Structure formats: structure tokens, C-alpha cells
Simulated assay, not measured.
Amino acid sequence: MTRKALLLLCLSTCLAIAGCSNRSIGKSIDDKLLPGRISSKINQASADLKSNSNVVVVSYNGVILLAGQTPRADLKELAERVTKSEPGVRRVHNELQLMPPSAVSGLARVNDATITSSIKTRLTADSKVPARNIKVVTENGVVFLMGLVSRQEANLATRIVQDVSGVQKIVRLFEYTN
């Protein structure tokens, strides 16, 4: 395949994927790049944040979720300040738990991945829920739902999540289209 044909194929794929979402291609790209930039800045801001914390950074439409664990309130606040300073960040939901990351076992992390997978499968299977517009993150049994949806779609998604085994709590961080 020639370089030009490959470029056209990639461009058309990106446009097709963007057409399936209610976000622009630029926002989708930003959401892929922001977490890495923010994580890097958080790690540079404090050795304690880098070595004694588990900070998960997720972005959807410029809305950032900070989840995980950190042992001290000042580290939680520092992670939020660093995140807010990053260009392209519209809003920050700081859901870091004040506890050492070692308090969350490897089994809990496997359970989180299983919960997330189950939720994504159920959302995709329901034709009334726009699964492509919903990001699911599970941390220590807490499920975070992010995305651009209508209030009705958010309620349907929440009902689906409530039926998944192992979910301790649901935190809705949606932006509503209506």
C-alpha cells in the first residue's frame, strides 16, 4: 500500500470514528494526550506523588477524573492544582482517596478490571445507551461514569451499572446534552 493510500485510509477511519461520537476529532485526540501529560506533571511535582500514590488520570471532553489513592490531603490538593494548570483542562473531578495505595490489593485491581469489562459489555449490548459516548473507570469498587449523554441515557446507563456484581458505589460525572 502506498504512503498516500495509507494516509487516506487513516484519515477516513478517523473521520468515521469521529462521526460515531458527539465529540470533535480534536477533543478525541486531546482526551488521548491529556492524561499522559498530566500524569507526567503530577509525577514531577512531588516524589511522594510519584512513589507513594496511585493516581489514575482520565479525560473525556476536557473533563478530568483523578482517581486512585494518596496517603495525604496535601498530595491530593497538589495533584488537583497541577491538573488544573494544564491547557485544555475544562474541569477536574478529584476523587483521590486518602489512603496508601498498598491498602488496595492486587485482587481488588483485578476485580476492578472485571467490573469495568462487564459494564462496558452490558452498555454496548443495550441499544438505548450510546456506549461509545460513555467512559467507564473502576477504582477500588467505585465506578465512575463520564461522557456526553442525555439525562435519559445517563439514567439508563446507571441502571445497567447497578446490576453489576461488585460495584460498591457509582459516581456520575456526565455532561448532559439536554
Rank of each mutant, 00 (worst) to 15 (best):
K84E: 13
R37A: 07
E77W: 07
K135Q: 13
G106H: 06
L66R: 10
V63I: 13
L75S: 04
A45R: 06
N155Y: 09
L156R: 15
A113Y: 04
C10I: 13
A131W: 07
R37W: 07
V57F: 05
G166P: 10
M146T: 00
I119C: 05
L49I: 09
A131E: 11
K76W: 02
I25G: 04
N54A: 13
R3W: 08
R172I: 03
T158C: 07
Q162H: 11
K50N: 12
A131P: 08
C20I: 05
Q152T: 14
T13E: 02
T2S: 12
G106M: 11
Y60H: 14
S53Q: 10
L9W: 08
P71N: 08
K128E: 14
N94S: 05
L9V: 12
V82I: 14
D74E: 11
P87V: 01
T2M: 01
I134D: 08
V129D: 03
I17E: 06
V55G: 01
V161G: 01
G62H: 01
V55M: 01
R23Y: 04
L96D: 00
S150Y: 08
T177I: 09
I25S: 08
V104Q: 02
V63N: 12
L49R: 09
V161Q: 06
L65P: 06
E175R: 13
D48E: 15
S85V: 01
V136R: 00
R37V: 11
S59P: 11
E139W: 02
L49K: 03
L107D: 07
T13A: 15
S28L: 15
A108C: 03
P35F: 01
L65N: 04
K27Q: 14
S12L: 15
K84P: 05
D112P: 01
C14A: 15
T177V: 10
V161S: 02
L96N: 02
V136T: 14
V149Y: 05
